[in-house]
Amino acid sequence: MEVTSIPKCRARAGRRERWAVLALLMAGAFTAGAAPLRIAPGAASLPPAQMPTPRLVPEMIAMGTFYDGAHVRIEGTAPAMSGVVVTIEGTERDEIFDRKGRVGPIWLTVDKIHVQSAPSVFLRFSSAALGSLLDREEVQKYQLDEAAIVCRCRILCHCKCDSMDRMKMSGVDDTVPDSLYAAVLISDFLKLKEHDGRYEEHPGSVHIAAANAGTNYALEFEWPKNIAPGRYRVTVYACRDRRVVAQSATLLHVEEVGFPEYMAKMASAKPWEYGAVAVLVSVLAGFLTDLITSSLRRRRKPETKRA
């Protein structure tokens, strides 16, 4: 069923077709061996030069009680006459998904998918369309698009656990899908991440200007409000002659501060006490509301009687 759905996808939408084809290529790569294909950046014969660390403003995004997103500016200097690609990646993690499939006229959960080592976030900004800056081989080598990112992930099917915790405890081995099914799963996974706004690509968003020492670049964007706290790796690639000539990386810290930090720490350090407090506060909130509304009602009644 999953195999025949690829041509259907192509017929439906060009966007889906693009993913399916790319994903098929990736799937072929990582299902060829038992271990996922990992291409280490900078493993080529001519490693790219280091360039000055990009400047982040702010260096840390503080998530307070009334956090309303943040405006981030990334700037620096790249070698002369080069285009710039900036990637922001979250930490790798394992995730489990339900997959729906058509069974006759209805859609049912037909499989459980386990994705290993997928970055929680992948945002890419560039001074021009990626295809005009770099060859496909370079994009693959430095993992500069979503399809290339999936290359380092491992997608497994027929997962038997409902939660990651139970999976870790039971040590259940999942099944490695065949290349065609893997392509469909990769395509679905990327679509979900795009839909959630966790994987995004913004060509033409990095501004570059020629300077004495090279090329000045600057990127400004709104940090997505739905992205969880953590450490995010910011990497800047300078591109010339369709290859990466220099790169530099730094970390962007996104941290909870004040009351949210206190709550998060309590929930992880004293979970049972936190649960009891949660129930107690909820019950009190319920009773308090009842008390307030009933006293308000009592006040109104004598007034109506007098009238």
Binding site: M263, W272, G275, V277, A278, V281, A285, G286
Partner: peptide, 24 residues
Amino acid sequence: TVMQAGSNHIVDLVLALLVAIGST
């Protein structure tokens, strides 16, 4: 709630209270 907070750490009290303000 107590079980979920204790074993899975997935109870968000702020979210629950905001919903609770409206729901009560």
